[in-house]
Design a protein around this nucleic acid. Structure first.
Lengths: 335, 335
DNA sequence: ATAGCGACGCGAAACGTTTCGTCAAACAGG
DNA sequence: CCTGTTTGACGAAACGTTTCGCGTCGCTAT
């Protein structure tokens, strides 16, 4: 509760000098510096961030907005981000958009009112004029994560989905799979679009014709995947492998298979873009990509800090973090 | 960016009147009220929370500190808490203590400096003089979640662990299990202590002598459970059932069993206090308690708001939220 | 009539910082 | 020796609110 005034009184200098000593914004003689620091220690002074923010117009807080923190991927992202930012003296305001663009915009507004220094957003990417409204509503350094927008207004960090799709398709192809089902999410969401595009491209490269009835879209809720997988597996000529792009799909797919009395990999191979699922001890252990969240967070923090410090304001850039393929036991070779 | 001054100018009243209108802190005639509200709408005024905080000495932000957000239970808690508080106009500062008391204290300090209106903490509950240091460091309405402290200085909300243990033991007993292994966490952490105590008590009640070599403590890391389960299952007389108190234990246990070539429920039954694990589609589907996180969050929010509004300051109370038993397929009957 | 009171409105101080502009002293170059 | 510049320190204003205390008005009860 000690204020800067107490320090000034104690050190027998002006308030201005104390501030200058702390922030190094003006020259202070070594003698005074020593006196001031001593006084600070003696009265146990800690600058009041609120007052500082009011005066400077910007805080030392960054805001994180994710669609749903209860998704393991998002939880790990939050943890990793918090670690990255707390290391450099920032703390985190946190909100969940519940995958609702309106909530997202409102959270952005609230965070802006709180003068956050920067924003990390996993954008919902949906709704009329989404991109324009986002640009309109954000007046703070911002980095987008996981999903990129067609207009490059913001720095973005995302998985290298094309590469990931390539790894998945090539792996399945090597195992002999030709009838591959792909569940895409909503169109317009880059992570889904890119994964689908990568799937198509790599299938092309390997010279396998895609059976369009095996490409289902949009499938983004657990229950949709649950229903979809049952449709797929009751086709006259069912797929030999199913690709899931996220955890909701994977959970629905596994439950749906179970409901049919089918299991992976015996009846069908299952592979996932999302690596946050039980890996050991449960059967089957899902072969999946592993996202490099630590790198994603670090890169995002770097981009954001560069903008905040205004070191330079280059064109917004997109960083793609390569995933790795973790081969487990949910895929088997077919004739 | 409109300030209260702009509103005052526009409505042709004083700044004081605008403030009084907004906050209802002083009588304002209906005529002026109307003018002021109109002006507010016209200039698009939003009060600046920072300035308000500075003047009032308290913010509209509450701080959440959990040991590890990447644990599904904690992620769901965060989601639920955020929902509960955003509904009543509060937003959330968030931090992870990484299960380190020092970090926890430091986070509390940072949040206090930011003048949070209240604190929700899942306390690490470890270290010298923990309780005393906590009381010392916290000068803000606070509610503890999941873990209670021996000294009742704070409101607390926690699972009804005695009841949960009773449900688990009775269920296992009904299935014929007598040789039940129990992995406890660190001593001193109430959630673990209570679960163990409940286990002992209910075993007593059912008249089954506990085989002490099957009670292992402390086991709180995944790898400890991984190792422990292998010791347990290679005893001359191994347990027929294993009780896990949290997700780390469960993951380690399942992996450890897999490593031995054993599986649940064929070789041993497995049951868990923590309900956040894959339930459908994977084998085995773990029979577990289901924690009622929504209720936990609501109760915590209620307790905290009561303290913040100073409606009354009764003795700190402990609320215990009853879990429910979800029977799945990881336990089987034995002779 | 007038003292007293409630309702209403305002100016100014306060919250704890940072920063602007000023000033004295010390120092450099001619 | 004078001028111009740098260094070091400070007082006061500013950030955008809330709140304290005061003043004015109209009403009621004496």
């Amino acid at each position: 509760m000690a204020t800067i005034k107490d320090v000034a009184r104690r050190a027998n200098v002006s308030v201005t000098t104390v501030s200058a000593t702390i922030n190094g914004t003006a020259p202070v003689s070594d003698a005074l510096k020593a006196r001031v620091w001593a006084a600070i220690r003696e009265v146990g002074y800690q600058p009041d961030p609120i007052a500082r923010n009011l005066r400077k117009g910007v805080s030392t807080t960054i805001g994180l907005i994710v669609p749903d923190i209860s998704i393991p991927w998002a939880a790990h992202l939050a943890k990793s981000m918090q670690r990255a930012f707390s290391e450099i003296g920032y703390n985190m305001l946190f909100a969940s958009s519940e995958d609702d663009p309106e909530r997202e915009f409102s959270e952005i507004e609230v965070f802006s009112a709180h003068r956050v220094a920067g924003l990390v957003v996993v954008p919902t990417s949906r709704g009329e004029n989404y991109s324009a409204r986002l640009v309109e509503g954000i007046h703070v350094p911002t980095v987008l994560v996981d999903r990129v927008l067609p207009q490059r207004h913001f720095d973005s960090v995302t998985d290298d989905n094309l590469l990931g799709a390539q790894m998945i398709v090539r792996y399945l192809h090597k195992l002999g799979h030709r009838d591959i089902a792909f569940m895409a999410g909503r169109t317009g969401i880059s992570s889904s679009d890119e994964r689908l595009a990568g799937f198509r491209r790599t299938m092309d490269e390997t010279g396998v014709a895609i059976r369009e009835e095996l490409v289902r879209q949009p499938v983004y809720l657990r229950d949709q995947a649950y229903a979809t997988v049952q449709q797929l597996m009751t086709l006259r000529d069912p797929p030999t492998a199913i690709v899931c792009i996220n955890i909701a799909q994977l959970l629905g797919t596994m439950a749906g298979l179970g409901n049919l009395g089918l299991s992976a990999p015996d009846d069908v191979s299952v592979i996932s873009f999302d690596g946050f699922h039980p890996a050991e001890g449960w059967s089957p252990a899902i072969t999946s990509l592993k996202q490099d969240i630590a790198t994603t967070s670090t890169r995002a923090a770097e981009l954001l800090m560069a903008r905040i410090r205004e070191e330079n304001q280059p064109e917004p850039q997109v960083i793609r973090v390569p995933p790795s393929l973790q081969i487990r036991s949910s895929c088997r070779a077919v004739a």
